[in-house]
Design a binder for these strands. Sequence first.
RNA 1: GCCGGGAUGGCGGAAUGGUAGACGCAACGGACUUAAAAUCCGUUGGGGCGCAUGCCCCGUGUGGGUUCGAAUCCCACUCCCGGUACCA
Length: 934
Amino acid sequence: MAARIPMASYPFQEIERKWQHFWESEEVFATPEEPDTSRDKFYVLDMFPYPSGVGLHVGHPLGYIATDIVARYKRMQGVNVLHPIGFDAFGLPAEQFAVEHGVHPRITTESNVANMLDQLKRLGLSYDWNRVFSTTDPDYYKWTQWIFLQLYQSYFDQTKRKARPISELVDEIVAGSSDVATAEQWKRLDARGREELLSEHRLAYMAEVPVNWCPALGTVLANEEVTNEGRSERGNYPVYRRPLRQWMLRITAYADRLEDDLELVEWPDAIKLMQRNWIGRSEGANVDFKLEHSQESVTVFTTRPDTLFGATYMVLSPEHPLVDSVTAEERQQDVDEYRKVAAGLSEIDRMAEGKQKTGVFTGGFAVNPVNGKKLPIWIADYVLMGYGTGAIMAVPAHDQRDFEFAKAFDLPIVPVVKPDREWLARYEITEEEYLESPESLEEVFAGTGEGCNSSNDEVSLDAVPTRRAKTLITDWLEAKGLGSYQIQYKLRDWLFSRQRYWGEPFPILHAAEGTIQPVPESELPVRLPEMDDFKPEASDDPDAPPRPPLSKAPEEWRFVERDGVRFERELNTMPQWAGSCWYYLRFIDPHNKERFVDQAKQEYWLSPNGVDLYVGGAEHAVLHLLYARFWHKVLFDLGHVSTPEPFRRLVNQGYIQAFAYRDERGVVVAADEVIDQDGQPAADVQGQSGRRYFHDGQPVVQEYGKMGKSLKNASSPDEVCAEYGCDTFRLYEMYLGPIEGSKPWSTRDIIGVHRFLRRVWRNFVDEESDALLVVDGEVDEGLERELHRTIKKVTDDFDRLSFNTAIASMIEFNSELVGLEKIPRRLAEPLVKLLAPLAPHLAEELWHRLGHAKTIAFESWPDYDQELVKAQTIVIPVQVNGKVRGSLSVAPDQQKEAVLAAAREDENVARHLEGKTVRREIYVPGKIVNLVAN
RNA sequence: GCCGGGAUGGCGGAAUGGUAGACGCAACGGACUUAAAAUCCGUUGGGGCGCAUGCCCCGUGUGGGUUCGAAUCCCACUCCCGGUACCA
């Protein structure tokens, strides 16, 4: 428990109330609609918060305080700053609350937003409050729907590598200049056929995709809503994988550009790498395998077409559409059972099961196109429908997973690539032995080498190195019409519909005969209908068609007539990602009624390549950041935004971590409701050994992770702010460590930064008389140098967002002033300015007391004098053979010879050199001397 | 499983190839006080030698390597965290 201290001396409550009121009533931080564009600008943005019922937790402000410091620092450098905030307010929790308590999500959302706005303001954050909006505002989601229509009305031109209006594709088809279809084909198609053809090219289209379907809840579940046993977290109902017709966005068309353009942004290398891996581009071939007793064939994707001769069986994903047609009658029962089990597993479980491979033989066979061999067709859950073609040719000699599977089910293993010597040596086996019995090892040879056992009458890969073998065989396959070059991505198209109420309605109408029509722009927004019952329709039948909440909307909403035809509105809504994909654009021009963002404003604030600094958690490394980049690129292609990328510089703040608790089903329970075996709240004893924890009488297990809604372990900043003030809270969060690092939440150390602010206050203000302790007059040279060094340090640290070290240097400088009776203004004013971005309330108050009428927010950032920053003498350690044996005080410009001579003269150094000959002398100017001797 | 990150005193961290532990917390000692709080000053990685200004050895998750010199670069491993496409 931190020591409590009286607050008589540093009246933070009064100061903070006063200046927060001043900033708000004067609209100090409102960015003008028409800023002076001759000045530099800086757009600094936080990732959109979700307005949860428990409000802000101490993890949120970590990023918000950092960006606020940057915003305030940039303003003091005379830059136009755009620093907005808003709310990503659609989403699951409000809807679930509505389902359970019957409160309309709008009500919950509005009160949560109001609460969070209040909390944000109490942290002294300098947002432009005039630009606040929520994704749930019809004025906002109107434009989300508009962007969806842009996607729907566009296609990706493979030649120009960019999005273009679909109408231009139609024009080209009609003119006969498109390879999508001939004018003749187009003419023969009816409306529905044309629609189908175009939907294969639109950036927004409908398709069947597998989802976690929970018939009892009547909805699709996220993997995290499914328990370890494959049941729903809510209600414990069974969950099934089944295909569902869904809206999809064709993000895969942009795969190459999303990968290539990572070079245009200043992001952490780790994030770029994760995006590259997520996109997962790989080159290889598609190969067709004819089915026995059928005209059909199975297409597989392989990155190793050179191993085609080594394919000894095939595996289809359990969801593969051809499973039924290849399955032999007597195998049907086993196959069905296996598919049922596989349908109950999430993708993570299917892969995580890892070691033990499972699968069943279908009884069907395919023919290897290169050697005519019969290949048994199996199904196994290690083949995923979502990647490649959902089917593989298994080459157990050269793929670890196929190898394990083949050993488990006793399938033949035929090596077709000769391992290199090094590899053979590692397993202590000769080439002959290996080729004879590859199954004797635990590992496969997955590397490259010369082919063997790989020839037919027309083509031979024997003795051909892997690289050339790939080309050779793929060319052969292409010539025979059996396969083709293929670039495959791990990235999948974006599943864009949700069976929920609390999301943006799609601006789409469905006609009875199955055609689709977009809602015209002039009719946007399509508002969410007023409803009381948000529950989707439940059913006992896993195959019953889904009835999402909007199917209960009033008829007047659901059905519309256009030109005498009755249409039903799309009943799905958009995912929460939609609103967060473009909010940074709306902040630039939030009140525009005519456009989603004004062209000129957008050009000014986004130049040269998007938001200047974007701060948020690394949990968004792939999904949000990839989705937002994708939308931005589409808007860029269509001429609506002027930069190829949305976020120029990205910084990931670390997480505040805390203990969390899970029950026996693997479901997270609220951490603040957990007690130990003695009935003490978990918060008081967690971390101690020998504790057992309980929630609602049931045992729970403790874990540790990111504070937030998923782990239900949030703790609010409110108490800390009340006890120590929000300036202390701001400093404390920044002083915890580097912004990128994760750290455990503890309030034990908070007293340290609070003491610092109190010392600052006492340096300026006499506690007894409230008189200012600042005087005009002479300044000690040592202190002056110290000040300039501090200014340099803080400025450099702010530039690299190293706030903890900036605070440390301010603490040091302030401590130098503690002994002074009165402090000279020449030291006092720059110190207050340095402090202003970090502790803005205290800084405003001191600035005001120093006799300034205007806010410190736009005062100029202090400069430092290079000469004064330079050290007069520096201390240089002297090493002998890499161990420090002495040190020297020298002038910074001292010559090498003189330094080395002095080094040898040092008593202790000389002692260590005794009886040895110096073989090498290293002098790094200003850093170190190392004498190498033996 | 796969992709990415992290590990430094009792604790949060500093040091980005050059004196490991800045700054803060906690602890201990002292000043002030009738006393406590607050405040101020000092000590504080572990071990050893010494009257001593001092000197020596060990030490940045584990094991190896590169280098005159490694917390920092490379290889292998352990544990923890984030993501894994419907939490956002």
